[in-house]
Design a protein around this nucleic acid. Structure first.
Lengths: 132, 132
DNA sequence: GAGAATAGTTTGTGTCACATACCAGGTCAA
DNA sequence: TTGACCTGGTATGTGACACAAACTATTCTC
């Protein structure tokens, strides 16, 4: 297997894990990402859309669906009468934390195929690639 | 950045590349994957669905949309009156090849951040992870 | 041959993403 | 200060995508 295939296949493998973890809680990958982003932020719609790489109209819908499920809530921005701040509800926070732990568990399990030295190497190399 | 984050972020980075290459030809990631799979196969609907991890009803729709765009065609299975074989049209094959080359180009560019030794290491480790 | 299994399609529902048009609240300049 | 413009967000309409359940047509099995 060549390098390109290896990295693409690995990417799909990880995406399958994310999708599976989401599915355990009836969440899509995007919804799971949404919760993850909100763990340490209370962004407005535009900012949230930037984090997700989505148009603002897409973001509205995403948030509305999550809100309908009680995972997320809108509050008026204190400094801008047009603005909205999106934040997690307690239920949403719980799910975000469970999801994150489960993802960590599964990715860690995947990485168990490497020994400690290899894992350290791999982390180092991946880190170079992601924010290089 | 910890190991889990690194591998997840890397996965998203690769997915963004795949989406961008698809978008150049007005193809979604799934459609691009569909073309890629058909490059060296003429599977039936069920087999195709397995490759893609999709339900057969999803596969029907996917193939129908690709067929409407002239990228793919259905032919009756010679050995099974119920069956259908899905294969690339010349236009579809062209797109599949262009897409694959462009993906290779971009992934290779991404990996240019590593030196030759690191790249070899990384490939080795990724290969262990994907089919381990 | 009759009944069960199999390959694919159809239909209906929901998510997700986008573009466009729209509204209300800000901002800036004359 | 007030009119023109800009901005944050929502609404609407369209299309891709995914699934489940119901259906058709063939093939397999006994």
């Amino acid at each position: 297997m060549n390098t390109v295939d290896a990295v693409v296949q690995l990417s799909f493998q990880v995406q399958r894990i994310l999708a599976a973890v989401g599915a355990e809680h009836e969440l899509s990958t995007v919804q799971l990402r949404l919760l993850g982003i909100l763990r340490d932020r209370q962004p407005g719609m535009l900012e949230l859309g930037n984090h997700l790489g989505l148009d603002k109209s897409s973001t509205t819908g995403l948030v509305s669906r999550a809100e309908k499920r009680g995972l997320v809530e809108r509050s008026p921005s204190p400094h801008d009468g047009r603005g909205v701040l999106v934040s997690l509800t307690p239920a949403g926070r719980l799910l975000a934390e469970q999801g994150e732990q489960e993802i960590a568990r599964r990715i860690t399990a995947l990485l168990k195929q490497l020994n400690a030295t290899q894992r350290k190497q791999f982390t180092h190399l991946a880190a170079i690639l992601v924010h290089g």
